[in-house]
Amino acid sequence: ITGDVSAANKDAIRKQMDAAASKGDVETYRKLKAKLKGIR
Rank of each mutant, 00 (worst) to 15 (best):
A20E: 02
A8Q: 09
A19H: 06
I1G: 09
A21H: 07
A7M: 13
K23N: 08
A34G: 03
V26R: 07
N9R: 14
N9I: 15
L32M: 03
A20W: 02
D25M: 02
L36Y: 05
N9D: 14
R30L: 13
K35M: 14
D25G: 00
A12Q: 09
I13V: 04
E27M: 05
Y29F: 05
I1E: 09
T28A: 10
M17R: 01
K10R: 14
A34T: 04
K15R: 11
K15V: 07
Q16S: 04
K33S: 05
K15I: 08
R30I: 06
V26Y: 15
K31N: 02
A21C: 15
I39M: 13
S22T: 07
I39S: 06
K10F: 15
A8D: 12
G24S: 03
D11G: 06
R40P: 07
E27K: 07
Y29H: 01
A12D: 13
T28M: 08
D18W: 15
A8K: 10
A20V: 01
K33V: 07
N9P: 05
A21S: 05
D11M: 14
A8G: 08
A21G: 03
I13S: 01
K15T: 05
K35G: 01
A7N: 08
E27N: 05
V5A: 09
M17T: 01
K10E: 14
D4W: 05
A12E: 13
K37E: 14
I39G: 06
K10C: 15
K10W: 15
T28L: 15
L36G: 00
N9L: 15
I1K: 09
R40K: 09
T28I: 03
I13M: 04
A19I: 14
D4L: 12
I1D: 08
K10I: 15
V5R: 12
A20P: 00
K33I: 06
A19S: 05
T28Y: 06
S6L: 13
R14M: 09
R30W: 06
I39K: 06
Q16V: 03
T2E: 08
K35Q: 10
T2S: 12
S22K: 14
D18I: 15
D18K: 15
S22Q: 13
T2D: 10
D25T: 00
A21R: 14
A7S: 11
S22V: 09
K37N: 11
V5F: 11
A12H: 08
G24L: 03
A19G: 02
A12C: 07
A8V: 09
E27V: 06
I1V: 10
T28G: 04
A34I: 06
K37S: 08
D11L: 12
T28E: 13
K33Y: 12
I13A: 02
I39L: 14
M17E: 01
D4R: 10
A8M: 13
K31E: 04
D18N: 11
Y29D: 00
K10Q: 12
D4E: 10
V5T: 10
R14P: 02
A12Y: 10
D25H: 02
L36W: 03
A12V: 08
K33C: 15
K33H: 06
G3Q: 11
A20I: 01
T28D: 02
K31G: 00
Q16I: 04
K23A: 13
A8W: 09
A21W: 15
K10D: 08
V26D: 07
A20Q: 02
A19V: 12
A12I: 08
K37Q: 11
A34H: 05
M17P: 00
K10N: 07
D11Y: 04
G38N: 12
E27F: 03
M17Q: 01
Y29G: 00
R14N: 03
L32I: 01
E27S: 04
V26F: 15
S22N: 07
L36K: 02
S6T: 11
G3T: 09
K10G: 08
R30D: 03
M17F: 02
T28C: 15
I13Y: 04
G24H: 03
K23P: 01
I39A: 07
L36A: 02
A19T: 06
T2Y: 13
A34F: 03
A34S: 05
K31R: 10
I39N: 05
V5D: 11
S6V: 12
K37Y: 07
D18G: 05
D18P: 00
G3C: 15
I39T: 05
G38V: 07
A34Y: 04
R40E: 13
I1R: 07
E27T: 05
T2G: 13
Y29P: 00
R14G: 02
A34M: 10
V26K: 08
I1F: 13
I13Q: 02
L32P: 00
I39Y: 08
G38A: 14
G38W: 13
K35T: 05
K23M: 10
S6N: 10
V26L: 14
G24V: 02
K37R: 13
A20D: 01
K31D: 01
K35V: 13
I13R: 00
L36E: 00
G3W: 06
E27W: 04
K10V: 15
A20S: 02
A34W: 04
I13C: 00
Q16M: 14
K15W: 05
R40D: 11
E27Y: 05
K31Q: 05
G24Q: 04
K15F: 06
V26H: 11
K15E: 06
A8T: 12
A20T: 02
V26M: 15
Q16Y: 04
K37I: 09
A12K: 07
V26T: 09
A21N: 04
D4H: 13
K23F: 04
Q16K: 06
L36C: 08
L32E: 00
G24N: 04
E27P: 02
A7T: 09
D18H: 14
G24D: 03
T28K: 06
R30V: 03
S6D: 10
S6E: 12
D25Q: 01
A12T: 11
D4K: 10
I13P: 01
A20Y: 02
R14W: 06
A8N: 10
G38H: 10
A19W: 09
V5E: 08
T2P: 10
A20L: 02
A21V: 06
D25E: 02
A20N: 01
D11T: 08
A34L: 09
D25L: 03
K33A: 12
D25C: 11
K33T: 02
N9T: 14
K31L: 04
L36V: 01
D4N: 10
G24T: 02
N9Q: 13
G3Y: 06
A34K: 08
R30Y: 06
L36N: 01
G3I: 10
Y29R: 01
G24W: 04
D18R: 15
Y29A: 02
G24I: 03
K33Q: 08
G3A: 09
A7K: 10
A19Q: 07
Q16G: 04
I1T: 09
A7W: 12
L32V: 00
R30E: 08
K31S: 03
K35W: 11
M17A: 02
S22P: 01
V5M: 13
G24P: 00
I1A: 09
G24M: 04
K33M: 14
K33G: 01
A19F: 08
S22A: 14
G38R: 14
L36F: 03
K37A: 14
A12G: 06
K31W: 05
S22E: 11
R30S: 02
L32S: 00
N9F: 15
A8F: 13
T2I: 10
K23H: 05
N9Y: 15
R14A: 04
T2V: 11
A7Y: 11
K31Y: 06
V26N: 07
A20C: 02
V5H: 09
R30K: 07
A34R: 13
Q16D: 03
K33W: 12
V26C: 15
D25S: 00
S22F: 07
K15S: 05
K35H: 04
A19K: 07
I13D: 01
D11W: 05
D11S: 12
A21I: 14
D18Y: 15
I39V: 06
L36M: 04
K33F: 11
K31M: 07
G3H: 09
T28N: 04
I13W: 05
N9V: 14
G38T: 11
G3L: 10
A34N: 06
G38D: 07
K35P: 00
A34Q: 07
A8E: 08
L36Q: 01
A20K: 02
G38K: 14
R14I: 09
A20H: 01
A7F: 12
Q16L: 14
